[in-house]
């Protein structure tokens, strides 16, 4: 099963490499990874999506917790949560295709953020499967020149917070 694990950690040199190293060292898989400082600049928030059975994910959270730089770990997929990913996608866009692409964008609530005579660059935010669906639905309309995705960020619903 796919899990989204959120990690609050010291914003220190080496901390990120410890987390990444742990995954490769213990043969855990990383689907995506995002990291940035929080409102408190001494802390970073890292989100990693991984696939594994319950036993593996239990070990992942335990091993993450063991890292000295890690302050807190939660598996967001254990409760209600919101996940978002940002994608920017550069598409071939000329002639009739332009209108068709625009329509698809509107359906997915994407925005065209850059235009040249032959291309559109579209920005889309949503859960990962929505981004996948957008890519799939463009398949017949145009050709994709470049895709860049941020990886998943997530937050728990309701009053639950991950903080010090």
């Amino acid at each position: 099963m796919r899990h989204i694990i959120s990690v609050l950690m010291e914003n220190e040199p080496g901390a990120l490499s410890r987390v990444v190293g742990l995954f490769s060292q213990r043969n855990y898989n990383i689907e995506s990874l995002t990291v940035a400082p929080t409102e408190d600049s001494t802390l970073s928030r890292l989100t990693v999506t991984t696939i594994g059975d319950d036993r593996v994910v239990e070990q992942i959270t335990k091993q993450l917790n063991k890292l000295i730089d890690v302050v807190k770990v939660v598996d967001l997929t254990e409760g209600d949560h919101i996940e978002r990913e940002l994608m920017m996608i550069k598409l071939k866009a000329n002639g009739q295709m332009r209108a068709e692409i625009k329509r698809t964008c509107d359906i997915f609530r994407g925005q065209i953020i850059d235009v040249t005579p032959n291309t559109y660059t579209v920005q889309l935010i949503g859960a990962s499967d929505k981004l996948d669906a957008f890519i799939a639905s463009l398949g017949n309309t145009t050709s994709i020149m470049e895709v860049v995705r941020s990886g998943v960020s997530g937050i728990a619903r309701g009053e639950k917070v991950l903080s010090l």
């Binding site: 040199p13 080496g14 490499s17 410890r18 190293g21 060292q25 000295i68």
Partner: peptide
């Protein structure tokens, strides 16, 4: 040495 020792230490400091 931080990189080399990372998987075989409880922690390391530079």
């Amino acid at each position: 040495m931080l990189g080399i020792s990372r998987p075989i230490v409880k922690h390391n400091f530079s």
